[in-house]
Amino acid sequence: MKDKIAVQVDDLTVAYNYKPVLWDVDLKIPEGVLMAVVGPNGAGKSTLIKSVLGIVKPLAGSVKVFGKPYEKQRRHVAYVPQKGSVDWDFPTTALDVVTMGTYGRLGWMRRPGAKQKKEALEALEKVGMLPFKNRQISQLSGGQQQRIFLARALVQNASVYLMDEPFQGVDATTEKAIIRILKDLRRTGKTVIVVHHDLQTVPEYFDWVTFLNVKKIATGPVKEIFNDDHLTQTYGINYKVSIQP
């Protein structure tokens, strides 16, 4: 069934300030999964995503997307950064931010036109933000800002989506809306990788999971590997979480 590998990480090591934050991580993420990356604070979850995207330069190892180096496959990868990583007081509108998702395909100096605008509007529609398209971004709630970021990634129309804590500080409605969209993406064969904090919701939201704490603890289908054993290995001694089947 799931035999095509979407993202392959080999022996990836990243160090900040002389200390490994990711240490010899090997990962094979099959195409079409909706995967959570879980682990304690400082486990290198964001770093993993950022080094897949080439934002962080690894000390060793390589990343391949559909069998080729990431630099050649940028078009197939979309990124949803943490909401807190940008200044939301920036003078721009929701539609404008979403249109930025088309910039990569446009390349240098070409301006977005009617086609790009249409794509952006469609993405806004998908995340339920169409009525807010002309709203200044600082006047959106945290959940709405997160939806805008999601829409921007949707516009990229990629095969692999990397998301850094998309549920951080969003309201319950937005969380439901986002997970619905993610499941839609999976249904159409896209691969979605999400840095996730809330262990309770892992079985409900995701079908694939990676446990990470500097080194890889385990990766695989939620049904098979999401258990107390791996949680304890990841989070430390006697970490218990009640798992609903």
Binding site: G54, Y79, V97, M100, Y103, R110
Partner: peptide, 18 residues
């Protein structure tokens, strides 16, 4: 377009290949 996106979100700009 490049100035605008860099001002708003430099890391994202990098991932788009700029």
């Amino acid at each position: 377009k490049e100035f605008k996106i860099l001002l708003f979100d430099p890391e994202y700009t990098l991932t788009l290949g700029f």
